[in-house]
């Protein structure tokens, strides 16, 4: 069943390669091997999910790609040279906004750090806020917003510099399901309009299947790539897709792979061992 899915030619196979991880490993000073010999190819326009249990090195992989950390072994091969920092947007699990600054100022921040004045930045900030459906909330401070709205601000801030790659580390894990579905839909819409590349970390099978065209399943101890799935379902994906039998079948496949990944971990105490 899994092989069948992989056999479907994903659209991204013809897209140029953006980044290739070759034999990437990360060992922390406390002796934990967070990543071991990871090979991964990311193509332009991919919506790639890193799916795996907690502690399998998803965040570590994302931080390596963002340049916030350096690999112990292996290389990250960026096509077209190492990326300008401005070409990477990062969304954390928490909204991580400046609590004292207004929504506008929070989204302005990346531009401000590049020396762009408030007036010069205003059109881009306003446009980005409109894209995440937050027009009219420019002057609110984070405390006055709901969890979902804060996350929208965080996405707007990551996207305001128009990065080529958007890295997201379990961005919606703390949200309720209704809000998460809405943000999933809106993120897909944004991605389809702008055609940037997304690397999306999640531990939710359902979220990864709904969003991505490729799912990389990871296993823990040591953190490694276990398998890869292509999700061939056509975009745009909406509520109809979310309730379709196709979606359910894909979720089942992804879930099977994830269970195998979890069980593959030596010394794990999961069912079946």
């Amino acid at each position: 069943m899994i092989r069948e899915t992989v056999a479907q030619a994903p659209a991204s196979d013809i897209a140029p390669i953006l980044l290739a991880l070759r034999g990437v490993g990360k060992v922390f000073s406390n002796g934990v091997t967070a990543l071991n010999d990871v090979d991964l190819t990311i193509r332009e326009g991919d919506f790639l999910s890193l799916l795996g249990p907690s502690g399998c090195g998803k965040s570590t992989a994302l931080r390596l790609i963002a340049g916030l950390s350096t690999p112990t072994s292996g290389v990250l091969d960026w096509r077209g040279g190492s990326p300008d920092r401005a070409n990477i947007g990062f969304v954390f699990q928490e909204p991580t906004l400046l609590p004292w600054a207004s929504v506008f100022d929070n989204v302005w921040l990346p531009l401000r750090l590049k020396g762009i004045s408030r007036a010069k930045a205003a059109p881009a900030v306003k446009e980005m806020l409109a894209r995440v459906h937050l027009t009219g909330f420019e002057e609110a401070v984070p405390r006055e917003l709901s969890g979902g709205m804060k996350m929208r601000v965080s996405i707007a801030r990551a996207m305001v510099t128009k990065p080529r790659v958007l890295l997201m580390d379990e961005p919606f894990a703390a949200l309720d399901e209704i809000t998460r579905f809405k943000l999933n839909n809106d993120l897909l819409e944004l991605w389809q309009d702008e055609r940037f590349t997304v690397i999306f970390v999640t531990h939710s099978v359902f979220e990864s299947v709904f969003l991505s065209n490729r799912i990389v399943v990871m296993a823990a101890r040591p953190g490694r790539v276990f398998d890869e799935l292509a999700i061939g379902a056509a975009y745009p994906r909406d509520e109809v897709f979310r309730t379709s039998p196709d979606y359910a079948a894909l979720c089942r496949q992804a879930s099977d792979v994830l269970v195998n990944a979890i069980n593959s971990t030596a010394g794990s105490h999961h069912d079946g061992h």
Binding site: R63, R85, L109, L113
Partner: peptide, 23 residues
């Protein structure tokens, strides 16, 4: 994470002090 966010956006020491640490 906020510190990382500033780093990702190429903030200088002074900018980090002015826009993040002092507030």
């Amino acid at each position: 994470n906020l510190r990382d966010m500033f780093k990702l956006n190429g903030a200088t020491r002074w900018q980090q002090l002015r826009y993040l640490r002092l507030p």
